[in-house]
């Protein structure tokens, strides 16, 4: 299991890509639980890899990982978004956050989110997070960290 002390939070490196892809896919598969509209595509792996590659090479994204003894056990990815209508203007939007089950309850999620806040504090005005409405564990997690709900996302299928 390991204790929280031997887990390091650091910026993602190109060589982490496969581990990160695996964690993000796990996260997306979990989302299937909440709504059929989150059914993952068969070739999710290829697209996740491209998505992470492009984020790693972009100034507008940050990826931070939790590492234990050379193994990536948690990841957070945030994008920088310009809220053109509103003030405060610049938003750091957490799009992915996942910790492997056996490394949970060690406040790694909190450490990852705090690392994002710390890294972006000079570049963004607010931090937001995006996740399926029915993920009550995420709701509780962000509420505990002091976040509040400011946006809803509703869906309807366009075709019968």
């Amino acid at each position: 299991m390991g204790s929280a002390q031997d887990i390091e939070i650091r910026d993602a490196k190109p060589e982490d890509i496969n581990s990160i892809v695996e964690l993000v896919i796990r996260l997306k598969r979990l989302n299937e639980e909440f709504d059929p509209l989150f059914k993952t595509r068969d070739d999710i792996a290829i697209h996740t890899k491209k998505y992470i590659e492009s984020a790693l090479g972009s100034e507008e994204s940050v990826i931070i990982v939790a590492e234990r003894k050379g193994k990536v056990v948690g990841v957070v990815k945030a994008d920088i978004v310009d809220r053109i209508f509103y003030e405060p203007r610049i938003e750091g939007r957490i799009k992915e956050l996942y910790v492997l089950p056996e490394f949970r309850r060690k406040e790694l999620g909190k450490r990852l989110v705090n690392a994002v806040i710390d890294k972006l504090k000079n570049r963004v005005d607010i931090i937001t997070a995006e996740f399926p409405t029915l993920n009550e564990i995420a709701v509780r997690f962000y509420n505990t960290l002091g976040f509040r709900c400011i946006m809803s996302n509703y869906a309807i299928e366009a075709r019968e």
Partner: peptide, 10 residues
Amino acid sequence: AERDDIDKLQ
């Protein structure tokens, strides 16, 4: 802890 369906089990 790493079985595929663990997150769903939660």
